[in-house]
Simulated scan of single mutants.
Amino acid sequence: MTLPLFPLNTVLFPGCRLDLQIFEARYLDMIGRCMKQGAGFGVVSIIEGQEVGEAPQAFGKVGCEALIRDWQQLPNGLLGIRVEGGRRFHVLDTEVQADQLTLAEVRWLEECADQPLTEEHDDLAALLGALALHPMVAALEMGGEVTGQQALACQLAYLLPFEPEQKQVLLEMDEPSVRLARIQVLLEQLQGDRLA
């Protein structure tokens, strides 16, 4: 499967929403093609390089499919799109085109069967509910009540202020229960840092 990539300084997770402003020709063309074909593109986290200009030298080998859910012309004249994270993928090979758009050969990753939330997830579920009250989270129509471990893990990993490298590790985890356990550890580290 060949997928055009949009490398960003962020990590997108399945089921999570991201608003983007598109102004570079390579990405305007890519979005146009995706909308005509009803297809998505791949978001990968930049490790080395910039979002604008030449293609980044290095990015995460696991990314998330971005499905276009809405678009509008913004007051600043740029194209605004809202995407939602779809399937995770592993980058096998890449090719940078003349316009600096990166095309990737990808393999879709299998998702584990979702498990219902248990009592041990109560605190994390309450945290997601609290995050839903934040204006930026509310604007994305995210947070609030979820029923499964997958949605809880993905939304917390996406919304909480972890380092990009930590978010990338969370994205690469297959098991939602393992991802939730890691989020708990990272939260404890954040609280420890604040108290220090």
Rank of each mutant, 00 (worst) to 15 (best):
E165H: 10
Q72M: 11
R33T: 10
L3Y: 09
M30V: 11
G77W: 02
G77I: 09
L170N: 00
L187S: 05
A139E: 14
A58S: 08
G32Y: 09
V178E: 15
I22P: 03
A113K: 15
A66E: 02
E95L: 07
Q149P: 03
V83Y: 05
P56D: 01
D93G: 04
Y27G: 06
A39P: 13
G63E: 13
L159I: 04
L12F: 08
G38K: 00
L8E: 02
G40H: 12
L117K: 11
L159S: 07
E105R: 11
V96Q: 13
R26I: 11
E172A: 13
L20G: 01
L109N: 09
A113I: 10
E24H: 02
A25W: 14
F6K: 06
E105M: 15
T118D: 13
R33V: 05
L131R: 14
Q115S: 04
A25S: 09
A181W: 11
P75K: 13
C34Y: 05
I68S: 01
K61E: 14
M173A: 06
P161V: 11
A39S: 12
L152Y: 10
V91W: 06
W71V: 06
G60F: 06
H134K: 12
L18W: 00
L74S: 13
L131H: 09
G148M: 11
L195H: 04
L124T: 02
F162P: 03
E175F: 03
P75W: 08
L3M: 13
L195N: 08
L133V: 08
G85R: 00
A196P: 03
N9T: 03
R194W: 11
P161Y: 13
R69K: 09
L190M: 14
L159R: 11
Y158K: 04
I81F: 01
G42D: 01
V83S: 10
N9Y: 09
A25C: 02
D99F: 12
D123K: 13
E120D: 05
L79H: 08
Q72H: 06
G144A: 08
A98D: 11
L117A: 06
D174N: 14
E51F: 09
A139K: 09
L128R: 04
I68C: 05
L92Q: 09
D93A: 05
Q166A: 15
K61H: 15
E65T: 09
R26N: 06
D93R: 10
M30K: 02
L5D: 00
R107C: 13
R194E: 07
V146A: 04
G42E: 05
P14L: 10
L180V: 13
F41K: 03
P14E: 08
A58T: 14
L131V: 06
G60Y: 06
A39M: 04
A181Q: 13
L20I: 05
E110F: 03
L92I: 05
D93I: 07
L12P: 08
L8Y: 07
Y158R: 07
L131D: 02
F13A: 04
G129S: 07
G32A: 13
